[in-house]
Design a protein around this nucleic acid. Structure first.
Length: 489
RNA sequence: GGCGGCGUACCCAAGUGGCUAAGGGAGAGGUCUGCAAAACCUUUAUUCGCCGGUUCGAAUCCGGCCGCCGCCUCCA
């Protein structure tokens, strides 16, 4: 496996500290507001990375933290008239609601910053003792100058940074680059006791403390959005390595942004869609697939049109499943060897290798998806060749199993066609229940048997109007929700 | 200003030295069908922003130019 390491700016062979175990820490969110799809992307990317490492046989421990105390939370608490804790709890719940809906599995450890205050204080004390940090009026700062490797992750020359540093500079800092490890609290602000008086931790120290506690001094993968490279991750490295004297992280992985009109989606620009907004319009599987259709380091331009197209391609998978079932039911039991058998078998057998090759190359989910859709095409092609007998049945089942197995890593292709369509009925607010649709189909079937084409077409048109498409097959009529067009209403 | 990234068909997107430049969507033609739908087949990049260079050979490496974006402040 090769992964792109931000630290070295190149793809490297992936070798974990322990041969068969991988430890991943991904930065989660600050719980002060609803998540937008940029947060979803990051969560999905690292969810998939975790899944794939497991698929590859590693025993994986995955940590994803919550920042549950910081300025934005305090501000939000004032606005909403709640305590900071209530704000944090509220938006942690909202986070789970959204991420669960997207099918993102929980991390193995989900630490909250405020549960590790003592650990942070220990590290800060250690950093002061070692001369890497200094206290001023109850605040503690990390002295960047004392850590010569500062800038190695973000490739920022320290002198340049200092020259360009913004003006809000705290006069008490020895250098504008120095960052807060501990902040004294003002009147009425949340506070914890510390050797430097009441206060709260700076943002960066929590990740150092929590990863050290659960993973020890050096672990394998640290991830997050590319906007965390500087200063957050740069600062984590400085604190952690200054404190332990050991390399902090082996592989730094960063996902790219979601853009709108080419600009980064962000709270401050106000150009964001919340996960909730999107899930009102699109099935979670569509959202996942859309986000995984581009390599994780590249930007993704948010586009409803592209989401629609993704919906069509997912539908293609479930339609194919439906077709397979119908075909097998009606297929002759007679063993008939056809030319297509060998070609199909070869495509099926080679699939896992192609999938793994793609994923082994820096988690190339876009290429992996390409292979999956290629196999779907092969399935349809095979059915068109009219195979029959036990061999055909086995090959078709094998192909589906392979697709589902690969799909498990991306957490797509895991439902039945029926589940998919019922979900679409809900998402698109279609005013028919499954029973009502089946009822119409029966009525239409009667008309068809009587060759009353006018009536049969009228029923079909009525459903079509509501977004339901009927398909007549030799095995009977099936229904599906029309995809690829904007939902009515 | 410093550092970094991107520019592949009508749209999205993979591909970073050599087999036919994946895959999805859209368009056109065909097979199938009562008509449809779906599916399949054929078709849509002799070419990868532009110009040079290296090489037997480049979308892929090097240089320049043009355009777009990100980080340098909280940010997934």
């Amino acid at each position: 496996m090769r992964v792109y390491n931000t630290l070295t700016s190149r793809k490297e062979e992936f070798i974990p500290v322990e041969k068969d175990a991988v430890r991943i820490y991904a930065c989660g969110v600050t719980v002060y507001d609803l998540c937008h799809i940029g947060h979803a992307r990051s969560a999905i990317v690292f969810d998939v990375i975790r899944n794939y490492l497991k698929y590859r046989g590693y025993s994986v421990t995955y940590i994803r933290n919550f920042t549950d105390i910081d300025d934005k939370i305090i501000k939000r608490a004032q606005e909403e008239g709640l305590s900071w804790k209530e704000v944090a709890e509220k938006y942690t719940d909202e986070y789970y609601r959204d991420m669960d809906a997207l099918g993102i599995k929980r991390a193995d450890v989900e630490p909250r910053a405020t549960e590790y205050i003592q650990d942070m204080i220990e590290i800060i004390k250690g950093l002061i003792e070692k001369g890497y940090a200094y206290e001023v009026d109850g605040d503690v700062f990390f002295e960047v100058k004392r850590f010569p490797e500062y800038g190695k992750l973000s490739k920022k020359p320290v002198d340049q940074l200092e020259a360009g540093a913004r003006v809000e500079v705290d006069e008490r800092k020895r250098s504008p680059l120095d960052f807060a490890l501990w902040k004294s609290s003002k009147e009425g602000e949340p506070a914890w006791e510390s050797p430097w008086g009441p206060g709260r931790p700076g943002w960066h120290i929590e990740c150092s403390a929590m990863s050290l506690k659960h993973f020890g001094e050096t672990f394998d993968i640290h991830g997050g959005g590319a906007d965390l490279i500087f200063p957050h991750h740069e600062n984590e490295i400085a604190q952690s390595e200054a404190y332990t004297g050991k390399p902090f992280v082996r592989y730094w992985l960063h996902n790219g942004f979601i853009t709108i009109s080419k600009e980064k989606m962000s709270k401050s620009l106000g150009n964001f869609f919340t996960i909730r907004d999107i899930l009102r319009e699109f099935d979670p599987e569509v959202v996942r697939t859309f986000l995984l259709g581009t390599h994780y380091r590249s930007p993704i331009e948010f586009s409803r049109e592209q989401l629609r197209e993704t919906e069509v391609s997912i539908d293609r998978f479930y339609s194919t499943l439906l077709r397979i079932d119908a075909y097998i039911q009606r297929m002759s039991r007679k063993e008939r060897k056809i030319q297509e058998d060998e070609r199909f078998r070869t495509r099926i057998e080679g699939f896992p290798e192609r999938f793994e090759e793609a994923m082994d190359d820096d988690f190339n989910t876009a290429l992996a998806l390409g292979h999956m859709f290629e196999l779907i095409k092969e399935i349809n092609r095979y059915i068109d060749a009219k195979p029959s007998g036990e061999r055909a049945r086995q090959l078709l089942e094998e192909a589906v199993n392979r697709l589902r197995e690969a799909g498990r890593v991306l957490n797509i292709f895991q439902r039945t066609p029926s589940e998919w369509h019922l979900s679409l009925l809900r998402t698109k607010n279609i005013p028919y229940s499954e029973e009502e649709i089946l009822d119409r189909i029966r009525m239409r079937q009667k008309a068809r048997t009587e060759k009353d084409w006018e009536r049969a077409d009228a029923i079909r048109d009525e459903l079509r109007e509501a977004g339901i498409v009927l398909e007549d097959t030799p095995q009977g009529t099936t229904w599906r929700v029309s995809v690829g067009e904007t939902a009515e209403g």
